[in-house]
């Protein structure tokens, strides 16, 4: 377990880490996620980090990393406060991210992800039964 230390790197590096800086709130949180066909999946409602926990000392052996993006109800605690239990998280793992630029590109089709169940439910239960729901507009 490695304790807190003075910065090990040149101070300027923390402002510009090899040109690879990425500020999560500015560039990741609340960004649109698209699937390979550019179909919107959701916005990034929260980000799951590994390597740091509330209520414990930080182990500086390894830096914390982003492991997953949360969607769905995860936006509610950000607006109203409170915590959502882990079992309710709708997660999209970071390993599915192809590219993070002005939108986040995910490698899985929107329909194939557990996290997008609500869209499918409304589609199957409400929209598709209405005549014309499955047809392209003309």
């Amino acid at each position: 377990m490695k304790r807190a230390t003075r910065p090990q790197r040149p101070l300027e590096w923390y402002r510009d880490p090899d040109g690879r800086g990425f500020d999560a709130r500015l560039e990741l949180l609340d960004r649109q996620m698209l699937d390979p066909d550019d179909v919107p999946i959701s916005t990034v409602d929260d980000v799951e980090l590994a390597g740091v926990e509330i209520g414990s000392a930080v182990d500086h052996d390894q830096p914390p990393t982003v492991v997953a993006l949360l969607v769905g109800a995860a936006v509610l605690p950000r607006i109203f406060g409170g915590h959502m239990p882990r079992s309710r998280w709708d997660r999209i793992e970071w390993r599915h991210v192809l590219r993070a630029d002005s939108v986040i590109h995910i490698n899985t089709a929107a329909d194939d992800m557990d996290a997008t169940w609500l869209e499918r439910w409304i589609r199957d239960r409400v929209i598709a039964p209405i005549p014309g729901g499955r047809h392209a507009p003309e």
Partner: peptide
């Protein structure tokens, strides 16, 4: 804390590399 700064790791083929937390804003 108004933001959290990461460093993008090397890309893994077609995929984004790891994001390592390096600083707090």
């Amino acid at each position: 804390v108004v933001d959290v700064r990461f460093r993008r790791g090397a890309r893994r083929g077609e995929y984004e590399g790891e994001l390592e937390l390096i600083a707090l804003i």
